[in-house]
Amino acid sequence: MSYLHTSCAFIILCAIAAGMIRILQGPTAADRMMAAQLFGTCGVAILLLLAKGLDTIVLLDIAMVFALFAALASITFVRRAWHEQTGASR
């Protein structure tokens, strides 16, 4: 186990936590979605670092699935959720 890698992962986790403020503030749904996208990239980075730090190679595969889902999530958001909303809460 490598503490250097896990602490780097922790720092990135802090970046995600700060990004949560954007989810709370909005103002548009897209801004909230962007915070989720941040979650995607940072999540992949965290998983990669943990894969090395904890010596669990399987986490690399999970990181890949994470990357795919992040892309799917934002495409689905744009195609479905955001287009159906109107006026007030956009």
């Binding site: 996208q37 995607g40 990669l48 990357a67 992040a70 892309a71």
Partner: peptide, 12 residues
């Protein structure tokens, strides 16, 4: 993984 994330983020 990096290429995948690059494509995904620029597309989204």
């Amino acid at each position: 993984i990096w290429i995948l994330v690059l494509i995904a983020s620029s597309a989204s």
